[in-house]
Design a protein around this nucleic acid. Sequence first.
DNA 1: TTCATTTTATGATCTTAATCATAAAGTAAG
DNA 2: CTTACTTTATGATTAAGATCATAAAATGAA
Lengths: 199, 199
Amino acid sequence: MINPKKLRDAGAILKNYKRGEVLFYEDAIARYYYQVDQGEIKMNNYNQEGKEYIQGIFAKGKSFGEPPLFADFTYPANAEAIIDSKVWQLPKDKFLKLLEENPEIHHKFTSTLALRLYYKAIMVSEISTQEPEHRILRILDYFKKNNTTDKTDSLSYKVELTRQQLADLTGLRVETVIRSIKKLEQKGELSIKNRKVYR
Amino acid sequence: MINPKKLRDAGAILKNYKRGEVLFYEDAIARYYYQVDQGEIKMNNYNQEGKEYIQGIFAKGKSFGEPPLFADFTYPANAEAIIDSKVWQLPKDKFLKLLEENPEIHHKFTSTLALRLYYKAIMVSEISTQEPEHRILRILDYFKKNNTTDKTDSLSYKVELTRQQLADLTGLRVETVIRSIKKLEQKGELSIKNRKVYR
DNA sequence: TTCATTTTATGATCTTAATCATAAAGTAAG
DNA sequence: CTTACTTTATGATTAAGATCATAAAATGAA
């Protein structure tokens, strides 16, 4: 996350997006650095049959869609508002200038990319070799880690993801997620209180 | 890739690894920046049943295993020499100092991470939503793009990967890869000359 | 507060890639 | 040159998750 004040000073503007609105499409050329101010943005792909894969969900303070700003390639996925959102938008050249003039921001930014690469490396391995329950737990733990400081395994973290979103994040079908979650509850790996998952 | 001369000046040493030798294991703490001087290194994961997933294959000039140097996490995968190799090894603190003192190297390095993130985003989406033939073509095109400047679709690029490696890169089984490749040949998407794949 | 949509749920059936079995060709090691 | 291992190959069977069908709750919009 870059300090919003710094962003504004560098020339960023705050844009509003309604639930369902698309910020950019897969294969488009990247022109801006984006950072969530309010709301939730997802990046996703659809295959020929319309099956969705969610690359990531970005909440307050998170940036997304930066990699294509650094090299000659287009967006690997779409970006869409999950709920009504406000997003900082900084033109590419101004963003690169900002990094250039602020080595500490550049370093922090590199760390962010590194962490995202780490997450992707784990997920691609999970999806290709692990069974549904294992994959789901990984996603839950990733969201828990990113949204709490709680390091216990007390099943106290409330998962704010629908079964469908979990399916789209893990490459599974919603029915499979529902059934797997039930099994995980029986095994004591998570708990379900009026339909909400706790991990 | 960082200029080998610069690496050596910064304090890097050149280490030898025999085919099959492991440079580091998953979950270990990262201590060095690595860059291939000669040979081939793969990064991979194994699941409980021993099924392998290959995160990437790194040839001459490519670096690997850098992300954990930037934040407080461990290696997401193992690194192993596919063939006898020589690898530059630079201690973490010296590597970070090198980036700090050379903004142009830092920027280039960020581009490398960005490109890798792009590749991972594509592969995770492919693996989770696409059928075998589609996945295999993606990997072939990725390797073609990274190893030639040839932009034609002349089926002139010789793929130096075994069927098993293709399987481990795509999360498929070797038999499935063999059968898919045959179908792709019939469709004219690739050609096979004495068992070697051309794309 | 009614209606439409989304989310969660469950059972039955199907399909695709995994698995299992076996072997020939190619390569490397001694 | 022989032996061991790796790679490619192919057919038969199986199993896991996808798909299909249906519906009750829950949520949200008008």
